[in-house]
Amino acid sequence: MVENRPFLKLLSHLVLILGVVIVAFPVYVAFIASTHKTTDFITGVMPVLPGSDFLATYKTVLFSGLAAAGAPPIGMMLGNSLIMALAISIGKIVISILSAYAIVYFRFPFRQLAFWIIFVTLMLPVEVRIVPTFKVVADLGMLNSYAGLSIPLIASATATFLFRQFFLTVPDELLEAARVDGAGPLKFFKDILLPLSRTNIAALFVILFIYGWNQYLWPLIVTTDSEHYTIVMGIKRMSDVTDAEPQWNLVMAVAILAMLPPVLVVIFMQRLFVKGLVETEK
């Protein structure tokens, strides 16, 4: 601060507190709703203070599911989401770090072409080519499987760029020294490059885990049997009951559970999260 202006400082605090309240409000409302009985919503407006049904609601959604909406227990959906998020984030990191290594540390015919093909993935979000991609996955018999949920999403231009950028900053002397000592390409990768990339890998993991967990359209179309539902898409199926108001307390409890894991990841790994976010966008 250049000068001391108490009024300005107070104003800043007020603005930020207001911002935090506005940002948190929708989640507060959802949480309050999840602590009430279904019948509390029939009469007029929803309550603004917590009810007494917190345990009962969460027990219902976690263990018995919503039979009326045809949804499986949430525990299973959480498990599916976790599998999908981990498969996507780990898969993306593995294939990206390998291809970045090939592009930076080797010279081979068609290297340029390969780089451009990978670059293309950046430009083709799944939403814009949804019908043909679905067709390919269906032809490969990957519908309703964890492979179908994750593999089509694991190509990543941004992760490849990030690793390429990082590898270019690694001093050449390291490679020369390793070669003098007789290390081959795989040994160099495993013993020198991988340990050096640890922070980058961790930061990328945080971002990609959130990306994987929050997938919506893709799981929605490739899973038709409830065994493979993920929680983010499951919410939609639940709030979609025909001819009746949804059981809001249960739906909101599921919404809270669905956002909890990625939000906790962001809060507890904020440093890595910020690093990953800022660097993948460069």
Partner: peptide, 14 residues
């Protein structure tokens, strides 16, 4: 910053 981690679909439902 935490709302970044909330899925767009969940934000929509809220």
């Amino acid at each position: 910053v935490w709302p970044y981690a909330v899925a767009p679909a969940v934000a929509g439902v809220l």
